[in-house]
Amino acid sequence: MPAAILATELSKTYDVKVRDPGINGALAALARPHYRQVRAVDSVTFAIERGDAVAFLGPNGAGKTTTLKMLTGLLFPSSGRAEVAGCDPWTGGNAFRQRIAFVLGNKQQLLWDLPPEETFRLNRAIYGVSAADYTARRAELVELLVLGHLVDKPARQLSLGERMKCELAAALLHQPEVLFLDEPTLGLDLEAQQTIRTFLGEYRRRHDATILLTSHYMADVTALASRVLIINRGRLLYDGELSELVARIAPIKRIELVLSEPVARARLEDYGRVAHFAPPSATIEVPRELATAASARLLADLSVADLSIQDPPIEEVIRIAFGEGAQDAEAEEEALVRADVRRAPP
């Protein structure tokens, strides 16, 4: 079965004009323009099977959106190939566009002045959905996304979370094979985020849809996609299970304490690295395999009101993967190579 999304050595290079600031720089640039090449996406290769959900993570400007645009046919690659739902996105034409949906978190596709119901009708015609299919799919989407009467209110009167749910419904009426989501839960309240995550998971299960989403929220990732692609400065740094990444990058556990009696920071350092100290709470990092033993010792030696063992937060893991505050791609790469996680098997 051919992969639903296939990227092979996908690259995108821009020529960016450089000029010195100020009037002299501006004039000089007019006379002799200088260009600098920016590699927005650099030889990215991955394959996603039909029905999988993958999260695309990376800091701002890492190349996530550029890659997504190449996969949806908005940009053509400088080199390399992309294949989505069996088509070349750039030349696939309308047949290709019938098979995908591209939902952007911060860009409006609903008709602003009309109720979402009108956008549904419009999309039905644009995508050529038959009456029977439309009724069935619309009913399913309204039920799963808990839309109710939202579809009858003008879009501009809806909250951001309500709008996003309607946007998703409008985007899925034609039952695309592949769903591209760019920051779908950005700026939404917790309840809306939860509804959308649950919905996407359920939708994927029911319709075997392939989902590729970018996100800042780790909760999106953990709820929807066990597999992550990490990209930074255009390079794909990691492709594999999130749990693997967590385990390999940071083979530590965090012991979170609430102390009933004050204890000096130095004392806690006997047990491990003190990551956080704000009495009465404290957090100690210990090697994974020593976590249980260390907890037992802490409980025995100190007056502990509460103790829990956690994985380090994903943000931490990612930050470590990219290098502590360093913006250097090589340093980040080195960090990963040292941990030997590059190109881990999916």
């Binding site: 645009k69 949806t72 046919g73 908005l74 309308n94 047949a95 566009r97 019938q98 995908i100 591209f102 952007l104 860009k107 409006q108 596709q109 644009i126 995508y127 050529g128």
Partner: peptide, 12 residues
């Protein structure tokens, strides 16, 4: 304002 993008990914 980036509103061209979704118009370019529609089959029309």
């Amino acid at each position: 304002e980036g509103e061209m993008n979704y118009r370019l990914t529609r089959p029309i």
